[in-house]
C-alpha cells in the first residue's frame, strides 16, 4: 500500500469515527463530557494519518515497522482511556452506594413517622 493510501484510510477512519460519536451524542446516550473526549480521540486518529511521516524517523530509530509504532501508540492511548473510565465508574458506584444508603434510612424514617401519625389518629 502506498504512503498516500495509508494516510487517506487513516483520515477517513478518523472522520467516520467522529461522525459516529456525534450521531450517538445526538441520540442523547452519550454525555457532553465523553463526547468531547471521544472527538479528541477521533482528532488524534486524523492527526496520526496526516502526520504519519513523522512516525518514520522514530520507527527507524527504534528499528521497528512504522505501522507497529502507530499501533503501539494507539493501544497505549486506549489503555489510558479505559483506566480513566474505570476511575469514573468507581466514583459513580460510590455515589450510587451513598444514595442507596440514604434511601434506605429515609424510608425507615418515613415508615416510623407514618406509624406514629396513624397511632396518633387512632387515639384521637
Amino acid at each position: 500500500m502506498t504512503n498516500n493510501a495509508t494516510i487517506a484510510i487513516t483520515v477517513v477512519l478518523g472522520l467516520m469515527f467522529a461522525v459516529a460519536v456525534v450521531l450517538i451524542a445526538r441520540r442523547g446516550i452519550l454525555s457532553m463530557r465523553y463526547t468531547v473526549g471521544w472527538l479528541f480521540v477521533a482528532a488524534c486518529v486524523v492527526a496520526a494519518g496526516l502526520l504519519g511521516r513523522w512516525i518514520k524517523p522514530i520507527a527507524s530509530a527504534l528499528d521497528l515497522d512504522p505501522a507497529l509504532v502507530l499501533l503501539g501508540l494507539a493501544s497505549f492511548s486506549l489503555l489510558l482511556l479505559t483506566v480513566q473510565l474505570s476511575i469514573t465508574v468507581s466514583g459513580l458506584t460510590e455515589r450510587a452506594r451513598t444514595l442507596a444508603e440514604a434511601h434506605a434510612i429515609l424510608k425507615l424514617r418515613l415508615e416510623r413517622l407514618e406509624q406514629q401519625d396513624a397511632s396518633k389518629h387512632e387515639n384521637q
Partner: peptide, 15 residues
C-alpha cells in the same frame, strides 16, 4: 433498612 439494590456486606454495614 431496605437497600434498593445489592451493595454487598460493606455497603449494608455502612448503612
Amino acid at each position: 433498612l431496605e437497600l434498593p439494590f445489592n451493595l454487598g456486606v460493606g455497603g449494608a454495614l455502612r448503612a
